[in-house]
Design a protein around this nucleic acid. Structure first.
Lengths: 201, 201
DNA sequence: AGCACAGCAGGACATTTGTCCCACGGAACC
DNA sequence: GGTTCCGTGGGACAAATGTCCTGCTGTGCT
């Protein structure tokens, strides 16, 4: 029996996947968690063979959870399952020690197959996505540029961001300008969109 | 047998739901479509009893598809299934003649139950969501304000929007200013966020 | 006929945003 | 010891944005 932990915030998706995987004779869902923070405790308790992690979740992201798992439960194989095939996500997933990266667009049959392959030590990655990740390259943004861009992307003014990050307005302007330059966009909104699209935030 | 049409763009979700509903003894998935445009043709061909429609899909939205169904196949009951419980979505779903409105957060068991209830002529709506929809009120935006806000919310400049909508820059500025005022926000980005959040776009 | 309101457009003005300078301290890497 | 980044700030300036006003048309309602 392959013991699987399932982390996914959307109730219906989580329930459907659990039910579905439960139908496989060799797979057993030993834990279901709806948040990123719940992953490590549940994993330490249940010791699953494979962790199936969504990225966008309340609390910690699935990528952060993957990094935690590698540190505290390295024998547990991580399989990322996400809505968005962002190049930066794939890159970060690999850096966090994930064994596989699936997008939710594919057919469901892929899922059980991927779990088995990952358990066998194989890497499971959509080739097209891998190519995109390589051609996009790593994020050109520095840490602070990323922070500022993330904080400014929701319509906050420069003054807001400065207050929130304890920076001067000048500094915020400078980081934004630099982020806009590096992303080749025309303003902070496009820059934030672009960065988000690439999985850089 | 309840004949169900399933429209959902995300492959894994669609597959999982189809499999799941197929397990129910009284439910049969007679069509699966990944786009809004595919709904009506498939419905006319298969004559389902219930149409289970996602809202955010490529092509037509599920809300538009619901309106089409009411016109061309009024005996088919529409059940909206969406990720986002936006007040404006619920309002528009009701106006489009939907019988039920479910968010994907709930448990999967809800789904089959909702299908049966909708077929029985019952309305299925999350009470909390209904309250939110009523308290939020209808969209205060005029058609053009909505168009302009939607076109400007992605980082486009005023000049871009003016060109795209064949308006003068002055007009675009005026609509934006008015939309910002009506939403009680500070700039176009916040206004667009707010409007999107309420399901007004 | 009168009124309100949507759609459209222009002008004037203040504020915000984006760009390009400069500067300083610290860390990392020769 | 020098060089090159990053993080942090300031100032000056141009461009974009947001506000407020005026004006015109058409439609619908009373």
């Amino acid at each position: 029996m392959i013991r699987v932990l399932l982390a996914e915030d959307q109730g219906m998706m989580r329930g459907a996947l659990a039910l579905l995987l439960g139908l496989e004779e060799d797979i057993e869902i030993v834990a279901q968690v709806p948040t990123g923070d719940g992953v490590l405790p549940a994993a330490l308790r249940e010791r699953p063979d494979v962790a199936l992690l969504d990225i966008e979740m309340p609390g910690k992201s699935g990528l952060d959870a993957a990094a935690e798992l590698r540190e505290h439960l390295p024998e547990c194989r991580v399989l990322i399952l996400t809505t968005f095939g962002r190049p930066g996500y794939l890159r970060r997933a690999m850096e966090a020690g994930a064994y596989g990266f699936l997008v939710k667009d594919g057919p469901v049959e892929e899922l059980a197959a991927a779990i088995r392959r990952v358990l066998g030590g194989e890497r499971v990655i959509d080739p097209a996505l891998a190519a995109a990740a390589l051609s996009t390259g790593p994020s050109p943004l520095t840490d602070r540029e990323r922070d500022v861009l993330a904080a400014a992307g929701d319509g906050s003014t420069i003054a807001d961001v400065a207050t929130r990050l304890h920076l001067s307005e000048s500094t915020v302007r400078n980081y934004l300008s630099s982020a806009i330059g590096k992303t080749g966009t025309r303003n902070r909104i496009e820059a934030a969109r672009q960065a988000r699209h690439n999985g850089w935030l």
